[in-house]
Design a protein around this nucleic acid. Structure first.
Lengths: 245, 245
DNA sequence: GAATTCCTCTTGGTCGGACCAAACTTTTCG
DNA sequence: CGAAAAGTTTGGTCCGACCAAGAGGAATTC
């Protein structure tokens, strides 16, 4: 706990740190302040060399760091694009590690279990305090879900969308991001599940049950329906390929 | 000698990727497989150059990438240390972005709100399904909490520990990590809050109420007590410095 | 003999220059 | 005017070099 490197806004790297840290800080500040507009390309490396009077090595290292933080969108042979950080940025930056964790035994199961936990809370809250617009959104999503029963691909999309509505209800930007995370990391496994209009019909019915319970302001019923819905789906995923823990 | 020449490395560059990606993959594999033991230092860069027959530039880039993924613990002038990924690794790797997000208006509030959401679910579940050992752990933590009322610093630690027990109950490694995240990211704000034996007494009483509700298998009471507890604390934090949105 | 100081070798951080191929611009030409 | 060709910029990679800080061992001291 003795690593109290005070993050001084000014020179922090003089005493043994990396030179790139200074540039990272400065660039980061320029990005956050809008001096480097969002979605605009970063100046060329040779250009940055002059601005910061540093070698290309250091510049490239700084750029790489910023990219790993998600403040730059750096595709191989292209100019890095400035990207102001949002909650999704954080999500993207953990992606690579999470993928590793998911490969380990029980990884996907733990993630899914946490999703059930979250959505249980979401539907309970929805049942208690969903506003008119929330309910309208749910109804909308439910309708689209029903209309897509015959087309499994579209159904999958509307299924995700229905659940997404639940994450919007708390009006907390963290939740939609969370949903995004689940959708992203669970999709590879989820999509292997066999799909058919029959199964879609069952899932739609579950959605409807959840919706009705929310309408009726019955948290317990909503939670139960949600748990039932997700666990059933999970069972199908497990059956499709059994070793997910 | 190197029997591979430059075949392996250059191959990947053909498809537009970076040469370092190949090395990142190989090193990552060696780390995950245990070929490079956990907590052992990485070979020197010059050494790696030969093993992968790549330039130091590429090696360094690969190391930096792995470090950003949390698979290596790379302090400035020291040899990078191999670190097998766990859930906490993922947490660490988002740290820098999250810190930025928290600085933005409403950031801390959103995070705290999500914590309340999570812990509400946790105490509900605890009330419904906590096992004997869980309850024993809670009781233990509660006792330590009480014993520390006179010492605000210790009290803070035992306070965190009490909540941590809640995150252990689901037996899902994601939750303790989550708790860690909250503790880490909220602490800077939390710790500014005025502390005193009187406040500690109030907080202890809240913990006790929560514990009792769990004992009595009353999810609603547990949730209510938890919400009350956290919101009160939050109010104190906001009063201490009003600009957290 | 153990601790300390000093010296040397190693190693990570940085630099500058160079080359290539892909991306971007400008010019040329049908 | 639009497409093809020529020219320029730029990111990716490699090389060789230098410096200062870390690591290890030798010499020195108590």
């Amino acid at each position: 706990m003795s690593q109290e490197d005070s993050r001084g806004v000014l020179e922090a790297a003089h005493s043994g740190g990396r030179a790139s840290d200074t540039i990272v800080d400065r660039l980061q500040h320029q990005i956050l302040s809008g001096e480097l507009p969002d979605k605009s390309p970063l100046p060329s490396e040779r250009d940055l060399m002059e601005r910061f009077s540093a070698s290309r090595t250091v510049i490239r290292e700084a750029v790489a760091t910023l990219a790993s933080r998600g403040l730059l969108d750096a595709k191989p042979r292209f100019r890095p694009i400035v990207r102001k950080p949002g909650y999704d940025t954080a999500l993207a930056s953990v992606g690579s590690i999470v993928e590793l964790l998911l490969e380990q035994k029980g990884g996907v199961g733990s993630l899914f279990q946490s999703r059930v936990f979250v959505e249980r809370g979401l539907v309970r809250d929805a049942a208690v305090s969903a506003g008119k617009s929330d309910i309208a959104n749910l109804k909308d999503a439910l309708q689209r879900n029903q209309d897509a029963i015959e087309d499994s691909n579209v159904f999958y999309a509307t299924d995700v969308a229905f659940h997404a509505v639940l994450y919007q209800i708390p009006r907390n930007p963290i939740f939609p991001t969370l949903h995004n995370a689940y959708a992203t990391w669970l999709a590879p496994h989820w999509s292997r599940m066999l799909r058919s209009p029959e199964r879609n019909r069952v899932n739609y019915a579950s959605h409807e049950t959840i919706y009705m319970a929310i309408l009726e302001r019955d948290p317990d019923a909503a939670e139960e329906a949600l748990v039932d819905h997700l666990n059933t789906a999970w069972e199908h995923v497990r059956q499709t390929f059994g070793d997910v823990g």
